[in-house]
Design a protein around this nucleic acid. Structure first.
Lengths: 191, 191
DNA sequence: ATATTTATCTTGAAATGCGAGATATTTGAT
DNA sequence: ATCAAATATCTCGCATTTCAAGATAAATAT
């Protein structure tokens, strides 16, 4: 019985699976995007629209990291392709609400509902305890990433910047990060 | 004790955590990309370069879904920014091998090593059995996604296509997908 | 009532990506 | 050994996408 080595192997294997998860879902999204005949950015925005229900153009811009001008063009293209429509928000007529059409939803269902069913089948074979283990792992990981990203954003230069400045900023982030890591690690409880 | 409802809640919660995982890691990548002062595509390619060690330009094109001409421009920009360098493959002088510079690696380490440490700390608090549950879940999910994506790619039109054609293709995919789902579900074993 | 802020769209210019083709290298056939 | 065919990357003209400044309309604050 060699728990230390076994643990290390499993840790490595899990790290790898996590990293590959991102890649696998990217590939699926790309294929869907290609099926719809839209470009990568438009596909990303359509996913955001689906995930958020019916965001305003501004919300879409914020979520996607694109400028509002670009979002106008994205929505124009998606509207032309028949995948979204615009609606004025009745409570604030400055705002344009963007929603997915029935066409987009139908295609999404055709492509993703069986994946979803398969996922349900997989989860259906797991005990509540097992589900909770995975849930906790992912939820903690999500929280870690979000907090780290928020902190890192504070160190991003607002305009042009030299390589030396970037390195200094990365160092400053690293120092603050260590404090955050200590706090988060403490929240994990005893080892 | 209500196992059916509890199970459904947990399943929903896990589905949600999975979907949010993708978003969380995207946000972290975006922040890193912004710190480096490179655009989204260049950041994506730098990630591929890091993940694959030192891909050839052609491999980078295949992984990224970009044309080789575009990859040349991407590598030009990354090289100019000091994050990658080109090297001729001594065994085949047609091939250009692209590798990350020490600068890129240093910045990557500054930004990601503590996240990695935190991940290790989280995993260090889990038993081998718990690790295995998460590993299996992710590895099965990764396999599902990859196989689905490969099948879906076969239904992507090779050029311009009408909305009706896209719908038909999605339907055809759906039918073949069901057979695949049955096979994959059978591989999960008894419920 | 007026000034200020907010939300989206327009526009000119810059950046990015595609696709055809050029160039160099390697592989396969004779 | 020689030549044809295939492979790998880069070049180039053009198309598409994105940015940033500014315009317009609507909502909020004074």
């Amino acid at each position: 019985m060699q728990p230390p080595e076994n643990q290390a192997d499993l840790t490595f294997r899990l790290t790898r699976a996590i990293r590959e998860y991102q890649n696998a879902s990217d590939i699926m999204d790309e294929a869907f995007t290609a099926l719809l005949g839209i470009n990568r950015t438009d596909g990303r925005c359509l996913d955001i629209i689906d995930l958020h229900g019916h965001p305003t153009a501004g919300q879409l811009a914020a979520e996607s990291g694109l400028t509002t001008g670009t979002v106008t063009a994205v929505v124009d293209r998606l509207e032309k392709a028949g995948y979204v429509r615009r609606r004025r928000d009745p409570g604030d007529r400055r705002k344009v609400v963007v929603e997915a059409t029935e066409t987009a939803q139908e295609l999404g269902t055709l492509v993703f509902d069986e994946v979803g069913r398969l996922g349900q089948a997989l989860m259906g074979r797991m005990t509540p305890e097992q589900l909770l283990i995975v849930i906790r792992f992912l939820e903690v990981g999500n929280r870690m990433s979000r907090e780290m990203a928020a902190l890192l954003s504070k160190h991003v230069p607002s305009g042009a910047s030299s390589p030396e400045d970037r390195r200094e900023r990365a160092r400053a982030f690293h120092r603050e990060q260590k404090a955050m890591v200590r706090r988060l690690e403490a929240s994990f409880g005893p080892r």
